[in-house]
Design a protein around this nucleic acid. Sequence first.
DNA 1: CTCTGGATTGAC
DNA 2: TCAATCCAGAGG
Length: 189
Amino acid sequence: MVRIPWLKADVETAAKRLLGCELWATLHGGVVRLRIVETEAYHQTDAASHSYKGKTPRTEVMFGPAGHVYVYFSYGMHYCMNIVTGESGEGSAVLIRAAEPLGGIGLLRANRPGIADPQLINGPAKLCKALGVDKTWNGHDLSKPPFKLIERPALKPDQVVQTTRIGISQAKDVPWRFYIKNSPFISKA
DNA sequence: CTCTGGATTGAC
DNA sequence: TCAATCCAGAGG
């Protein structure tokens, strides 16, 4: 059951709306709270999306209900985390690229020893590493503990920057990356 | 079965 | 600038 109605809206709207929302996770017995500051939208009709060529075993959860986590493994060493959006049957999701620690930062540091705070979670794979997210979380419903998405009021439009996505070779021109203006926690521009 | 390239990161 | 290091997806 989706408790956040706008997650079922179009993926561009959802990507924008996820900025400022929080992720709460239980880690090593403590609670970590993050504020999402950077997102990217991916859709079935988008050549850069894993769902572009239709449903496959890997992308199955992208086609499932909104509000679940889609985790994929890449470059032989990294995990990245998405939040599934849209109606079931539609292959869309929002990549969480960076966040701001609100609580439990010590637990994040424990997962990334030797890394300075500004680099703790300012990238999609860094975020997963710090949160201990791997494929075992693929498909998890974010309305349930121990890993939850908490809705927050929408940001004012002038606080949101819209630009092109990072690290892709297809559809480079599609402006589906969003981040909170002036946030020091976004990934490298 | 084999081959290719990637929604990245951090060390040089 | 580039290696690390695996696997999904495509083609045979």
